[in-house]
Every structure is written in structure tokens, then in C-alpha cells.
């Protein structure tokens, strides 16, 4: 640990934490893919309702994205605002 200043240490740990925080993107990825697959199946069953299925799917996907964006926001805070810096 000699030769590493405490600022550099906190900065490195913040970068690692930011990387860990964007792992939250896995969940929305699975959820959005699931929603898109179900929407494709629904269009296959009922091609006439394509418009409303599309809007419902996009709205649901945008809501499912929220948790991923929370992770992204935490990563941004750690990277640029550096709240943990002494």
C-alpha cells in the first residue's frame, strides 16, 4: 500500500464501484428481451393489433428500464461527482 495516495485509492475504488453498478443493466436486458419476445408472439397470433401491441411493449420496456438507469445514475455519480473523495 506504500506509494498509493488515499485520493488515488478512493478514485480507483469508485471506478470499480461504477463498473459494478452498471451490472444492474442485466436485469432490464432480460426483461426487455422477454417483453419483445412476448410482443412478437402476440403479433403472430393477432396481426391486426400490431399498433397497440407496439405501444404497450415500448411503454413496458421503458418502465422496465428504470432499474438499469438507477444503476447507471449511481455509476455516473461515482465517476463524475466523486462523493467519496476525502
Amino acid at each position: 500500500m506504500n506509494g498509493i495516495s488515499s485520493e488515488a485509492f478512493v478514485l480507483g475504488c469508485s471506478a470499480i464501484g461504477a463498473g459494478l453498478a452498471v451490472i444492474a443493466g442485466i436485469g432490464p436486458g432480460i426483461g426487455q428481451g422477454n417483453a419483445a419476445g412476448q410482443a412478437a408472439a402476440a403479433v403472430g397470433r393477432n396481426p391486426g393489433a400490431k399498433g397497440s401491441i407496439m405501444t404497450t411493449m415500448l411503454l413496458g420496456q421503458a418502465v422496465a428500464e428504470t432499474t438499469g438507469l438507477y444503476g447507471f445514475t449511481v455509476a455516473l455519480l461515482l465517476m463524475f461527482l466523486k462523493p467519496l473523495m476525502p
Binding site: 421503458a62 418502465v63 428500464e65 428504470t66 438507469l69 438507477y70 447507471f72 445514475t73 455516473l76
Partner: peptide
């Protein structure tokens, strides 16, 4: 909070 973070996160990314 969730409404604003959704818009902000998408546009900022």
C-alpha cells in the same frame, strides 16, 4: 424521481 431519472438517464447516456 423515477420519471425524471428515466428521461435524464436515457438522454444523458
Amino acid at each position: 424521481v423515477s420519471m425524471s431519472l428515466r428521461l435524464f438517464g436515457n438522454m444523458f447516456s
